[in-house]
Computed example of a mutant assay.
Amino acid sequence: MKAFTGMIVVTTALLAGCGGTSEPPIVGQMSERSICQTAGYLVRQKMGDNFSTARVDCSVQKEGLSDVLIESSYITPTDITLRYTAKGSVRGDTLHLGAIKVHGVDDDFIPFRNFGF
């Protein structure tokens, strides 16, 4: 429940922080930027504070009414950048990550609940 509550708070804060330069939503009430920032936050929560998702390229592809495919990266504590693809869904202003695949590490998508340490 802690992660879910944090996800809502972060999403709301990110959307509120965009101010007058906010992007239009692409799914639910979330823009590509807010989806990328929230996905990065969720990855950091799973991997730990030593991992970074700042200043990495991210893109979101809408798939269906509420599903998204996120392409991004995270940086390990040893400065190795690992690219990932995540499958998620958006409901209102909340992103739920269902599965993730780290390129060069995973052969196929794994449930996001099994991702990390």
Rank of each mutant, 00 (worst) to 15 (best):
Q29N: 12
D106L: 06
G28L: 03
T11D: 05
V10K: 08
S66W: 05
F51C: 01
C58A: 14
E63Y: 10
C58W: 05
G98I: 06
R33T: 13
A13K: 12
M7L: 11
K101M: 13
A16K: 15
T76K: 15
G28A: 03
V9C: 04
C18D: 15
D79P: 00
Q37I: 08
F109D: 00
C36Q: 07
N114V: 11
E71R: 13
G48A: 08
I75H: 02
I35R: 07
G28S: 08
A39W: 04
S89D: 01
C58P: 09
D79M: 14
M7D: 07
D67W: 06
Y41W: 15
F117N: 10
L15K: 14
I75N: 10
D49R: 15
T76V: 01
L15Q: 14
K101Y: 02
I26F: 06
C58I: 08
A54G: 11
M7N: 14
Y74I: 05
R44Q: 12
G48W: 12
M30Q: 00
T81Q: 14
K101D: 08
S34R: 02
D108K: 15
Q61R: 15
C58K: 07
G17M: 13
A54P: 00
I8Q: 08
V27E: 01
T76S: 14
M30H: 10
A54H: 13
S22E: 10
T53H: 09
T21C: 05
L82I: 00
D79G: 00
D106M: 11
A16P: 09
P77S: 07
V90N: 03
R33Y: 10
G6P: 03
T53V: 12
S59L: 00
G28I: 07
K2R: 09
I100C: 04
D79Y: 11
D93V: 00
G28R: 06
R83M: 06
Q61Y: 01
G40R: 09
G17D: 12
D108F: 11
R91L: 03
G40E: 05
P24T: 13
F115A: 01
V9E: 10
L42C: 08
L97P: 08
S89C: 07
P77Q: 11
D93E: 05
S73K: 12
I8V: 15
S22I: 10
K101H: 12
T85H: 12
C36D: 02
V68Y: 01
H103L: 05
F115P: 06
T11I: 01
F112I: 05
V10Y: 04
G116E: 00
A54L: 13
R55W: 02
L65P: 09
I100K: 06
Q29F: 00
G20E: 10
V43D: 01
P24D: 01
D57P: 05
P24C: 04
A39G: 11
R83I: 07
D57L: 13
P24W: 07
Y41S: 01
D106R: 11
S52Q: 10
D57K: 15
A16T: 14
E71Y: 14
R83Y: 07
L14Y: 03
G98C: 04
N114R: 15
